[in-house]
Simulated scan of single mutants.
Amino acid sequence: MRPRKTDRTASKPRRAAKRPPARAAAREDGAQTRQQLLEVAGRVFAERGYVYATSKEICERANANIAAVNYHFGGKDGLYAAVLEEAHARLVSIDIVTEITQSAASGADKLRLLLRKIVGEVAKRDEGAWELRVLSRELMAPTSLMDNMMKNQVMPKARLVTGMIGDILGVPPTHPAVSRSTVSIVGPCLFMLIASPEWQKKIFPALLVDTDSLIDHMVAFALGGLQSIAAQLRGASRK
């Protein structure tokens, strides 16, 4: 008789399912804790301001260890600096500003897209977005912790926007008329950011009734001014 064949595979021990490496899991948990701290800190800083906010309250509300702020941000100052940078990035990201200003659209369309994004975000203040309230507080009572936000958010975006406005005016972005025009266009956005929704409604009750109409008006007003300045610059260059 032939020997009976055995099922060798049945005798092999089953391999246990692979578990994610402990380090990878720890990194994921750490990233989640950091993001949770950032979100909660944004709300606390928006409510209380930098001076009266404490790491203890932030950690308690984030269900995090009291040492987590020091571990992830180096302390309250580092956390606040990170919150400022995150708030500015959420208002309008560098990627969006780059996409708009470097597109093949006309100068007028670029300006319209940019204002639509900024004004649309500012108009959300009634929904309780902490990002705008944090930026508003910082603009009204500046701290010494704006450096990262200025370096990584404000300055790169400013270079892109002044380049766009310089193209509309037909002059280099370093021309004084570009700086003056940029301030004239950004100024109304800063007013909407700094002034509380309650005060805006008291002073200008119809301001945010129709956001689309407001954006169209701001674009038309800005383009009218830019066209006038461009004509003056062309006239001066002929003399």
Rank of each mutant, 00 (worst) to 15 (best):
R4M: 09
R15D: 00
P20G: 01
P21E: 12
A25Y: 07
A25W: 06
R27T: 03
E28S: 11
G30C: 05
Q32G: 02
Q35F: 11
Q35T: 05
Q36M: 10
Q36S: 08
L37K: 00
L38D: 09
V44H: 03
A46R: 05
Y50R: 12
E57Q: 13
E57R: 10
E60P: 08
A62R: 07
N65P: 10
I66K: 13
D77S: 08
Y80I: 09
V92A: 00
I94H: 05
I94F: 00
T98C: 00
E99G: 10
T101W: 00
S103D: 04
A104G: 07
A105Q: 04
G107K: 00
G107R: 01
A108D: 11
L111M: 12
L113C: 01
L115H: 07
V119K: 13
V119A: 15
E121S: 12
D126K: 10
R133Y: 08
M150V: 14
K151V: 12
V154W: 14
M155E: 14
K157L: 01
A158L: 09
A158R: 13
R159G: 06
G163T: 04
G170H: 11
V171D: 06
P173K: 13
P173C: 06
T174F: 14
R180D: 07
V183H: 09
S184K: 13
G187P: 00
C189P: 00
P197V: 10
W199Q: 14
I203L: 14
I203Q: 09
L208N: 14
I215C: 07
I215S: 07
L223H: 06
L223I: 14
Q227W: 11
I229G: 04
A230W: 01
A231G: 05
L233P: 03
R234K: 13
G235R: 06
